[in-house]
Amino acid sequence: MEAFVNNLLEFFFILVGLLLGYVALKVATDKTHPAKFGTALFWLLLGITFALGNFIPSEITGAILLIVGVLTLTKQVKIGNVQEVTEEEAQASSKKLGSLVFVPVGVLAVVAVGIAQLTPLGGQAGIGIGAVVSLIVAMIITRSSPKQALEDGNRMVQQVGPVGFLPQLLAALGVIFTEAGVGDVIANGISSFVPQGNPLIGVIAYSAGMVIFTMIMGNAFAAFTVITAGIGIPFVISQGGDPAVAGALAMTVGFCGTLMTPMAANFNALPVALLEMKNDNGVIKEQIPMALIMIVFHVILMYFWAF
């Protein structure tokens, strides 16, 4: 079963790689593209890492990522000539579909959770299968052809741009930080001014550390292992705090940091790109007040529930 699941996941990665390869082809054949070579190379290299990541040496993958980073840094990745949807077409589709537009999203969630809970395939395979099933449902509801779905995929990928893959890079960075012992460095630094034996101060430091590090990393999962090892265990759990309660609340308070940082590209940058908002930080500005309120409540709940 494990081999089957791994092969299934590999299939989904190859599908993503093929989509990115198609984007690279569309860019390469776009005669009016402002940065055709750099953009096509960017999507082609990313497609190679997705489709062939398990078949090429890690050194080559690392070199590819360095090239991808240089292309992004030098602003060589730009949107080209994509199939735009006019305001009239969008309004007409909205009136025609109504609430049915939410069905594919619900199907994805139900299929993914169902597979994760009721089968031995696991959550990752569930998300992949749910995505494929929801795409088929969306095509049926909208009466779209596979070619139209592919073109919409190309448009979405180009509109979102490099920020769409920032969460993956940040998650990898979290693993690197953990292996490098960043958690121990943080623990030593915190111990110099946070007193031992004070649960409230420990809870505040744990919560604040999760928020700040999540804002830096853009990912609460990446921050969790580092901050829990550096602050949570020595200053909260070792003081008698319930590890299940403290850990769960630490994770969710980290999500408060996600609401306040542009590094959380999938939450804050993608909506800006997809909705074509004028203010790059418009989503973050709306979320900050609620995030600050939730941080306070998390500190209170962790202090009273974990101890």
Rank of each mutant, 00 (worst) to 15 (best):
P199H: 02
G21H: 15
H298Y: 14
K26Y: 12
I288Q: 00
A112D: 12
V299P: 05
N219S: 06
M302N: 03
A125M: 10
G126R: 08
V70Q: 02
L200Q: 10
L100S: 07
A265T: 05
A229Q: 08
L259W: 09
E2R: 14
T72G: 01
F213Y: 12
A35S: 15
F221C: 00
I64A: 03
T29E: 02
G153N: 11
G153Q: 04
F165N: 01
L270V: 15
I127M: 15
V160N: 01
I212G: 07
L259I: 09
G218V: 09
V175H: 00
L292P: 01
L97M: 13
Y22K: 12
P162Q: 00
P289W: 00
A109E: 09
V236Q: 03
F255L: 10
Y22S: 13
I237G: 09
L170P: 07
Q239T: 08
A222G: 15
T74R: 09
V27P: 15
Y22I: 14
P289D: 00
T258A: 05
A131R: 09
A244F: 15
V82I: 10
M210A: 03
L44N: 07
A229L: 11
T225V: 14
L8V: 15
L166A: 08
K285A: 04
A112F: 06
T86S: 13
K75V: 11
G181Q: 03
L249E: 14
V107D: 02
F4H: 08
L97H: 04
V70C: 08
G164T: 07
A264W: 03
V16R: 07
V105I: 10
A28Q: 07
V157I: 11
A125L: 15
I14S: 09
I67A: 04
N198G: 01
M217Y: 04
L135E: 09
L73P: 03
Y206L: 04
P195D: 05
N188H: 11
I227C: 04
I79F: 01
A205R: 15
G232P: 05
V77C: 08
P199W: 04
W305H: 06
I201L: 08
L9N: 06
I141C: 12
G202M: 03
Y303V: 05
G122H: 09
P199M: 02
T178S: 01
V296S: 01
W43P: 05
I295Q: 02
T86F: 07
A269R: 02
H298W: 05
T49W: 05
A246H: 06
A28C: 07
K278M: 00
G240I: 12
A172Q: 11
T74F: 14
V175S: 09
F224E: 06
